[in-house]
Design a protein around this nucleic acid. Sequence first.
DNA 1: TTAAACTTCCAATAATATTTGAAAGTTTAA
DNA 2: TTAAACTTTCAAATATTATTGGAAGTTTAA
Lengths: 170, 170
Amino acid sequence: MYMELPEAKQKFIESWGKLGSEWGINRTMAQVHALLLLSPEALTTEDIMLELNISRGNANMNLRDLMDWGLIDKQLKPGERKEYFFADKDTWNIARQVAKERKRRELDPVIKVLNELSTIKGDDKDPAYKTFKKSVSDINKLAGNVNKTLEMMLKAEEGWFWKSIFKLFK
Amino acid sequence: MYMELPEAKQKFIESWGKLGSEWGINRTMAQVHALLLLSPEALTTEDIMLELNISRGNANMNLRDLMDWGLIDKQLKPGERKEYFFADKDTWNIARQVAKERKRRELDPVIKVLNELSTIKGDDKDPAYKTFKKSVSDINKLAGNVNKTLEMMLKAEEGWFWKSIFKLFK
DNA sequence: TTAAACTTCCAATAATATTTGAAAGTTTAA
DNA sequence: TTAAACTTTCAAATATTATTGGAAGTTTAA
């Protein structure tokens, strides 16, 4: 299969956007990220609007979100007012940042609820209660383990064990 | 904080649904799953419609999807026509099934595209080409590693190394 | 200061995803 | 067979989420 660079770029941006949306991340946000990942130099809001055919408001909003996620940064060029945006291109950092944000926004609140639900009292002879308790406690345990692992991964390069595991991925 | 079982159930179902939707899984599907996780006996479509206040069509569709995902099964009681649904309550199986489905539906197609994009030829002096190539190849590498790990996890209990890692999570 | 050059906000609009409900389809006991 | 008891389908309605574009807000060079 033969493909030119612009077509290939297009395809990458499209795929990244699709993957993002399947994982609960705004499609356009993922596309802006993809565009910046492929760009050798930092781009202005204008550039991004043009390349992706989106409005100024939309571009701005998604750039802001990407900065909140820690996936891109802005650069100021001396003598210019415009802001130039560029992406961190280290895949391991990208994975870490995404894991960090999602943990904070999604896993942490769920763990809080699960802990609350673990305290419910009831009649141990009631099957509904027994099943409830068992399911909540099992899921709580799994969530707790996932959480611990993520924390270790985020605290990063500490400890020979996880360090050596994670190195395999980079 | 004091809570009765029915309220706690409600809260669990709500949280599970929210988590699902944040991860690109239909909210109602996650809620049906939650309901079945908490239920000691298998439930009929009717039960589920009533408990979650959803239509017959919706209940049916999500039950079918959950079966496709391998998260629930149906049971036929002798002498009855109705179908009774119940969830696999082993958290490790749940995690495995979800990982399996998402890998198949999302990761595999992305890897295919990335491999295609890796073959693009261009001028090594062109910065746009160099950045494209580097980003695609880095992401390809990460995706490949994630893929390998998932495959190992799905092939399951083989090999002392991963077996011992995974046991920590169960 | 001021005004040009930008960025951000936000209400209206558009696009997407989910849900409903009734009709069509299927299965089985008699 | 038939008809009652179910399940499945799908077009229309609803709900949710994303996008636009213009107005308001900021910043900075002069």
